[in-house]
Design a protein around this nucleic acid. Structure first.
Length: 588
RNA sequence: GCCCGCGUAGCUCAAUGGAUAGAGUACCUGACUUCGAAUCAGAUGGUUGGGGGUUCGAGUCCCUCCGCGGGUACCA
């Protein structure tokens, strides 16, 4: 959105000036002027001053002197309203109406694609969510889903072809416990409408029995050996109950707006994992310690490193599989199935060493693409007092409970604010607000920072939160609706902004113009927090505009311009929210 | 021990190596006969964990120390 051509011309003039003054060329770069109210670009002259062989006195003073000289040299370029030299910076202020017109017209032209980038030609797989079947989801899982799906949205908008993948833990002790408990105490029962809740309650029950009741523990052991021997009845029950879990996940994913293109099951890669272990042994990469010890790969020994890659355990001493056993064939399968330029794993930071080991093993196996594996590590969700969530201690906050509580609370506020709205719409809006409010704190902080969950702030719909941003959208919609203008594509007229813009208007336009840049940065660093912060700043700028600049009561030309600005702000906020996977309601 | 992350206002967090380190929250004072008060304005709040270094310029980069959290051969 920046007037690049003008900028280039100015840089050319500066280069010429440098040559004449016997100064090094190419030391000058433009950046935004930090002050609001009037916008433009600035060039710090410190690097040039520092490099000047004829410099006398300290750098800052010399930079100021150079800025003043340059100011005279370039005079007033087209598209700019004024030039100033201050504190070692050369500041160029844009001609406001031209710039405003350019930005707003472009937003209306691009509409819901505003901010999106051209295709990069890259294909990227993002693995996220990775739940275990037969187990409940809690807020810890929530961060993964929200982060993962938001990163997918961001990469996609930035031009990558994104394949969303989910790796489901459908085997293991937790499954055995659940099924054994089901057969003994709930045989024949079907899940209720709220599948997740029903599955979760049975899991809690099974887990409690497993710890409290030695007979049940023994029953599980027997059950496990039957499973191991390939009992057909158990397999049938497993497939049936696994599907119940998948149906429950689907409900949650729909609610959260997460979707997947490819689902991998842990059970799919267990056998191929064991075959791969044999292969690694045959190649001499792995060492077989069985029957007393497990099968390992001593990476430090192989690489000559010390306490860096450690030892990777890839098969238990009893021959049963481990996490690492299955991760290896899965990684290979991904690259066989898709022409991936990058394979991203959204997995919590505690598994960093395992991820590092896995990609190194693949590299040693000769897979060139091993370097294209990227572990997108994020910190866990804690409870106040640095308490880690544990189902054993009963400290988990179930997703189900959180969503229900938040929706209830949002609903009572919606009923209060919009009593005339029909009940279905009220519920729909409450859900959008509640889900948004839950999501925002999970993506508004950096991936590497711990999120501390507490009910009070999770249910706070004020301040720096999703509802604040959604509210700005609602206000914009309200104005547009009252004005009776169409927000359909192509219906908004181009306006000239041929009046003296208010500082709030300038600031809002500035923020609107920034979306493409913010998206690029978020995509490059896999940081939804970049967009979360930006969306809030944008909404704040709109609220500022809303308070200071009357739209409907403004006179003709100003009214038309402000309506266009209002609509452009609405589009931009909606697009930013979309990247975060947060819905923008019409009313709330 | 070794590896990774974190440390910024009372609390929760922002800030491509650039100008006077910003928001939210809490507390205090104000604003709905007004385009929707889930909002806004104002006030209070700082030795960016300590110490060195690089640089014209460091919250940001390097070194070192301190504190907290996590990981470190058969959980995932």
């Amino acid at each position: 959105m920046m007037p690049f051509n003008e900028q280039k011309k100015i840089l050319k003039k500066i280069d010429q000036f440098c040559l004449e003054q016997n100064l090094p060329v190419g030391k000058i770069e433009f950046r935004d002027i930090p002050f609001s109210g009037e916008w433009g670009i600035a060039a710090p002259l410190f690097p040039l001053a520092a490099a000047d062989p004829n410099r006398v006195g300290p750098v800052p003073q010399h930079a100021q002197a150079l800025a003043e000289k340059l100011k005279e040299e370039i005079s007033l370029p087209a598209g700019f309203s004024r030039v100033e030299a201050v504190r070692g910076y050369l500041n160029l202020y844009f001609e406001t109406s031209q710039y405003a017109n350019k930005v707003i017209d472009y937003v209306h032209y691009a509409d819901h694609c505003y901010g999106m980038a051209e295709p990069t030609g890259k294909t990227v797989m993002v693995e996220y969510s990775n739940p275990n079947t037969h187990k409940p989801l809690h807020v810890g899982h929530l961060r993964n889903v929200i982060l993962g799906s938001s990163v997918c949205n961001i990469l996609e908008a930035n031009g990558d072809k994104v394949i969303r993948a989910n790796y489901i833990g459908d085997i293991g002790l937790h499954v055995i416990k659940w099924m054994c408990n089901y057969e003994m105490y709930h045989a024949g029962q079907e899940p209720s409408a709220d599948i997740m809740r029903w599955m979760a309650d049975l899991y809690t029950e099974a887990d409690r029995r497993f710890h409290d009741d030695p007979d049940f523990e023994e029953a599980c052991r027997v059950y496990f050996s039957r499973w191991d021997e390939g009992d057909k009845d158990i397999e049938a029950l497993w497939l049936k109950t696994r599907q119940w879990s998948m149906d429950g996940f689907k409900q949650v994913y729909d609610l959260l707006g997460a979707k997947f293109d490819r689902v991998y099951f842990e059970s799919d890669v267990e056998e191929s994992g064991k075959v791969l272990v044999e292969d690694l042994l045959a190649r001499g990469l792995a060492e077989d310690g069985r029957p007393e010890n497990p099968v390992i790969i001593d990476l430090d020994k192989l690489l000559g490193t010390k306490e860096e890659y450690r030892v990777a355990v890839i098969l238990r001493s009893d021959g049963t599989s481990l996490y690492a056993t299955k991760e290896l064939p899965l990684a290979i399968m991904k690259f066989e199935e898709y022409p991936l330029d990058q394979s991203i794993y959204v997995i919590d930071v505690r598994q960093s060493l395992h991820m590092k080991q896995m990609s190194k093993v693949l590299e040693l196996m000769g897979y060139d693409w091993a370097k294209q594996i990227y572990h997108l590590a994020y910190e866990i969700v804690n409870l106040p007092g640095n308490v880690i969530m544990s189902s054993r201690d009963g400290t988990v906050v179930l997703l189900d409970d959180l969503i229900r509580e938040a929706t209830d609370r949002a609903l009572s506020i919606v009923k209060e604010k919009n009593p005339d709205l029909n009940p279905e719409s009220q519920h729909e809006v409450a859900e959008m607000v509640a889900i948004g409010a839950i999501k925002y704190p999970m993506i508004s902080r950096e991936n590497t920072k711990i999120v501390t969950f507490d009910w009070e702030s999770a249910l706070d719909f004020n301040g720096q939160s999703a509802p604040y941003i959604q509210y700005a959208c609602v206000r914009a919609n309200s104005i547009l609706k009252r004005a009776g203008v169409s927000t359909e594509y192509g219906q908004m007229p181009s306006v000239s902004f041929a009046y003296e813009l208010d500082a709030a208007e300038v600031n809002l336009i500035e923020l609107i113009a920034r979306l493409p840049m913010e998206l690029g940065k978020a995509a490059k660093e896999y940081k939804p927090s970049q967009i979360a912060t930006y969306a809030y700043d944008l909404a704040k700028a709109f609220n500022d505009f809303y308070n200071q600049c009357p739209v409907l009561n403004a006179e003709d030309e100003k009214r038309t311009a402000r309506l266009a600005l209002t609509n452009a702000a609405r589009i931009t906020i909606e697009n930013a929210l979309h990247l975060l996977g947060i819905k923008a309601p019409q009313v709330m």
